Amino acid sequence: MSAPPATASWASADPYALALRAGHGPLFLRRADGWLLPLDVDRWCARADAVDRAVLDRCEGAVLDVGCGPGRLVAELAARGHAVLGIDVSETAVDRTERLGGPALHRSVFAPLPGEGRWGSVLLMDGNIGIGGDPRALLDRVVQLLSPGGLLLAETAPVDVDERTQVQVVDVTTHARGGTSFPWARVGTESLLRYAALAGLTPDAQWTAGGRRFAALRARSTDPARSSAEPPNSAAVISSQRGRNPAADWPVADR
């Protein structure tokens, strides 16, 4: 599997960093034709709500939150005593996550990551199925990260859509834009299930709550490509204790 090409990310764009520091929007992804997709910065910067917590109740084993943003989900899992790690390409997001007490790394999902092949659960929330603009490539990468039989918990678009496009981060109140455009995708549940089948993930559950749609997908319980990987209960699983360096608990080979 080849990763999508390195591009400027919406999460490293200046309007996004400013919004996270302020704790609120409005912020949008803007297509070239002018269509705007609102980003729910206010909710992301708040504590995990009832809908979020119900998703987190399904988590199994150590949890990797891909595109953790300002860290509400990582902080909630850490408070519950879960082994958890957030990753994000935004330094501002990582800083905010750590201030909430959640371990996080400034890292792309397509870069080498701790514990590959040993995560019990991976989260793709808040539209993060769109990362890289290629859902199939992203799901292939998730399969590499999950332990055999591990669980992907993904939030899909509220409508049936399968769109790949170029977008730009904009603040419509100041007309600030986040640099160059970058690839993004929007995927509804039906489209996600099609891509998931190609990646070797099987449906586990689907549900709607609070106007948001979710799907749980499970990796194969055995994968010949991972025959040499360490078992999921190896010493690589980190502690979620607050105030610790998340990378310090992982083997050097996994960093």
Rank of each mutant, 00 (worst) to 15 (best):
M1G: 15
M1N: 10
S12A: 15
S12K: 01
A13S: 15
Y16F: 14
L20Q: 11
R21P: 00
P26H: 04
W35R: 14
P38K: 04
R43K: 09
R43W: 08
A48I: 04
D52L: 07
L56F: 01
A62E: 10
V63I: 10
D65L: 00
C68G: 03
C68R: 04
G71P: 03
A79H: 09
G86R: 01
G86A: 04
D88V: 00
V94E: 09
D95S: 15
E98Q: 15
R99K: 15
G101N: 12
G102S: 10
L105G: 10
R107P: 08
S108N: 15
G117K: 11
G117L: 13
R118K: 05
L123Y: 09
L123W: 08
M125I: 06
N128S: 12
G133P: 02
A137D: 06
L139N: 12
D140P: 00
L146Q: 04
S147F: 00
G149C: 06
L152T: 06
D160G: 04
E163G: 00
Q168A: 13
V170F: 05
D171R: 09
T173Y: 11
S181L: 03
F182V: 01
A185P: 05
T189A: 06
E190L: 04
S191C: 03
D204C: 05
Q206S: 06
W207P: 01
G211F: 13
R213L: 01
R213I: 01
A216P: 05
T222A: 13
D223V: 07
D223G: 02
R226C: 07
P231Y: 04
N233F: 13
S234T: 10
A236H: 13
N245Q: 10
A248S: 13
P251E: 07
